[in-house]
């Protein structure tokens, strides 16, 4: 997977993107978020509040039950504030 991070999530992690293999047993967005929280303190903090986290799979907004595959581009970011 290609994981990309924006805005406050990017800043909390100090990372804008990374290649990351789909962990075994992870099939959807909700499971992936839980997994991300287990990747250390920075990740735990950045992914702690589900209400302030949005996910896009292949550049399309995704819900918690959306399936994820190893070839996907998955983005994590806070609620948008454009306009």
């Amino acid at each position: 997977m290609q994981l990309v991070y924006f805005a406050s999530v990017r800043e909390s992690l100090g990372l804008s993107q990374e290649s990351y293999g789909l962990p075994e047993g992870i099939t959807n967005v909700a499971q992936l978020i839980s997994h991300m929280r287990s990747r250390g303190d920075k990740f735990a903090a950045a992914f702690s509040d589900s209400l302030k986290l949005r996910v896009a799979v292949n550049q399309v907004h995704a819900q918690a039950d959306q399936l994820v595959k190893d070839e996907d581009e998955i983005a994590f970011f806070p609620p948008v504030t454009g306009g």
Partner: peptide
């Protein structure tokens, strides 16, 4: 257009 731009377009202001 503006209503949905505000809720869906991936922009962030700092």
């Amino acid at each position: 257009l503006m209503d949905f731009l505000k809720s869906d377009a991936p922009f962030w202001k700092k």
